[in-house]
């Protein structure tokens, strides 16, 4: 187990329990939580764990602030969409689209990194913001190619669609294409997460952490900072693109709002901060809490408002329409009480 986790386990009893619970819940989600909404949430959590972990490789381990992460995510998603539109429904088209999206993301990341990582960190952040905005505008304008604001529907192999029904059951649940699609997402996300864990615990990851702490010192010890930062940017972009491909395959749809929007970029930032920067496990906790809050906080508040209907003012405060306000309050409180993120707090044991 220690080897699978690259010797970097949760290192806290409470965190181990939380991570184990999240893993088991995701692994058995189709059987534990019936209904399409629950499965939708589980798949989103799995994909966002990978997306957030890949961003943490940049921000938490490399100290590089980028606003182009959703662009790489989108490139992976659009790669799959365009490939299936032009090559037709099939596994080959999925693989080709996934690979093309990833390669394009890596090339673009390489070019951005090479041109801007030599300069100060703030310029890199600004350049990524500009490129990401330009790509988002392009995607919404090139409607003949990308479907514009309407996005594109994706033809995935029939075995992954809800129409497919296997002739056997597991734990009393009929296996459908939707469940198979979920397990494709889950297995790929688990593999990508373990890969990221391996990367951050490799000699490369150690150098990245040294660079984050002090780039001049790392350079004086003998490491070419620009090369390490460029490789980190490319790796992060590749994993984000793969997560984007999985998201497109899961949703069977891709559009600017689902993959390229600045709103998603901010969500990713919040998940990294809530979970804890500089630890891949933070992505697991941050993404799970955030996606659950996005999907269920409204319901929870609705129930709470009903339960407190007899009290003055409280039901108004708990009105489900105010869920974003409470999400904001929860974020501020988490940053105030857990400045090193939930994982940082749990690991420090204080």
């Amino acid at each position: 187990m220690v080897r699978i986790l690259s010797g970097d386990g949760p290192r806290s009893a409470v965190l181990s329990l939380i991570v184990a619970a999240i893993f088991l819940a995701l692994a058995f989600a189709p059987f534990l939580f019936p209904g399409s909404r629950a499965l939708e949430t589980a798949a989103r959590i799995a994909i966002f764990i990978v997306l957030v972990a890949s961003y943490d490789l940049l921000l938490g381990y490399g100290g590089i602030v980028s606003f182009a992460h959703t662009m790489f995510f989108g490139l992976g998603a659009y790669g799959v969409a365009l490939s299936t539109v032009h090559l037709g429904r099939g596994w080959g088209a999925l693989a080709f689209g996934t690979l093309s999206g990833m390669v394009l993301a890596v090339v673009l990341a390489f070019v951005i990194a090479l041109f801007s990582l030599r300069v100060r960190a703030i310029f890199f952040a600004m350049i990524t913001l500009a490129v990401a905005s330009a790509v988002a505008v392009l995607v919404s304008q090139l409607s003949w190619l990308t479907g514009g604001e309407d996005g594109m529907n994706i033809q995935i192999p029939r075995e992954l669609t809800p129409a497919f029904r296997a002739d056997f059951e597991i734990f009393g649940t009929r296996i459908t294409g939707r469940i198979l699609n979920y397990y494709l997402v889950f297995v790929c996300c688990t593999a990508l997460f373990l890969l990221l864990l391996r990367i951050v615990n490799s000699p490369f990851g150690r150098v990245l952490q040294a660079i984050r702490e002090n780039a001049f010192r790392a350079e004086a010890v003998g490491y070419r900072v620009v090369i390490y930062r460029t490789v980190a940017t490319c790796l992060s972009a590749a994993v984000a693109a793969l997560a984007g491909s999985l998201f497109a395959i899961w949703l069977r749809y891709v559009g600017p709002d689902t993959t390229l929007s600045m709103e998603i970029m901010i969500d990713i930032l919040l998940m990294v901060v809530i979970g804890g920067m500089g630890t891949i496990w933070g992505a697991v906790v941050g993404a799970t809490i955030f996606v659950l809050a996005q999907n269920y906080l409204q319901n929870l508040m609705g129930a709470a408002a009903e339960a407190t209907a007899g009290l003055p003012l409280v039901p108004d405060l708990l009105n489900p329409d105010r869920w974003l306000l409470w999400l904001g309050v929860a974020f501020i409180l988490s940053v105030y009480f857990f400045p090193a993120g939930i994982v940082g707090r749990l690991r420090s044991g204080r």
């Binding site: 000699p203 150690r206 150098v207 952490q209 040294a210 702490e213 010192r217 790392a218 004086a220 010890v221």
Partner: peptide, 14 residues
């Protein structure tokens, strides 16, 4: 000029 967030071992390996 040590890397304060890394362990002694990691500093030496680096």
């Amino acid at each position: 000029g040590i890397f304060a967030n890394l362990t002694v071992e990691e500093n030496m390996i680096l």
